[in-house]
Design a binder for these strands. Sequence first.
DNA 1: TTCTGAAGTTAGACATCTTCTAATACAGGA
DNA 2: TCCTGTATTAGAAGATGTCTAACTTCAGAA
Lengths: 151, 151
Amino acid sequence: MAPTDLLSRLRARHWRLSAQRRAVAEVLAGDHVHLTAEQVHDLARERLPEISRATVYNTLNELVAMGELAIVDVVDGPKRYDPNVTAHHDHLVCEGCHAIRDVPRSTPPPRVSGSAAGGFLLTGVEVTYRGLCPECARRHGLPAAHATRDR
Amino acid sequence: MAPTDLLSRLRARHWRLSAQRRAVAEVLAGDHVHLTAEQVHDLARERLPEISRATVYNTLNELVAMGELAIVDVVDGPKRYDPNVTAHHDHLVCEGCHAIRDVPRSTPPPRVSGSAAGGFLLTGVEVTYRGLCPECARRHGLPAAHATRDR
DNA sequence: TTCTGAAGTTAGACATCTTCTAATACAGGA
DNA sequence: TCCTGTATTAGAAGATGTCTAACTTCAGAA
């Protein structure tokens, strides 16, 4: 089975690994990482102070194109990058602070009937749960979180 | 039951309706509308040439805050605005041209187990299907669309 | 080792999308 | 009509992401 760790996967692909690319890949190590490009840049600079924004964006875009990195869209604010592309999972996004939590995909994802798809060639499904994290719920004066209600 | 038409809903709410706001609301009438802010501005200007960009953004943001308008996120490019908030439906987004198609939600949406939600107060679920529309599939030299495969 | 071409990196300009600011205009109640 | 709060406006500014052109580094050939 293919390694689940980003750096190992890149090595296995014989991706040309410069110091800059390694810094980006290292920052993105881990399973529950959802950083913005800016955050990646800041963290990468701690390892390699001279790394430029353009290189970070170039690298992120390449990794996405290679399928080694997924984009998580939060609606507000910049894109987040998720290195966990091997384990299918969904996301739970806090509407208050935009924190993201991974949610394992227990049931098979929903499907579109052929007629509803209307000739579209489907390539993927994303499920995004919206809500308030415990802290934001408290800040909004809402009761402790237990109920789930469909929107 | 609440009216499904945006303008009627706004009237029912006694929303202060200026000429500018009416122009925006009229542009957004319909069930399968997924316009960008720029497109809303352009169309609104056909009715009211002096309407400003800031007013369009203000109005869209208010409508979203009121829950009368939903944001559809396409990952690339600007946000789209969807006035159909009464009929639960999902979206099918073309990765090539960013066209959006509404998909009726036939099966109940997936749920998160309480433990996976980890204290989040859930407010909604979105399902986004990604794929290629018939034209983009053809342009990419892909076969006619019938198969659906999970990512 | 040195050369060479391809690929990677960089700073900064630029493009795009959205929000903010401060001034002005307007709507509806007293 | 006047007053007060809200809506609107142009343009500046902010946030995010991409492009350009020069420079550097690397891998392989000689």
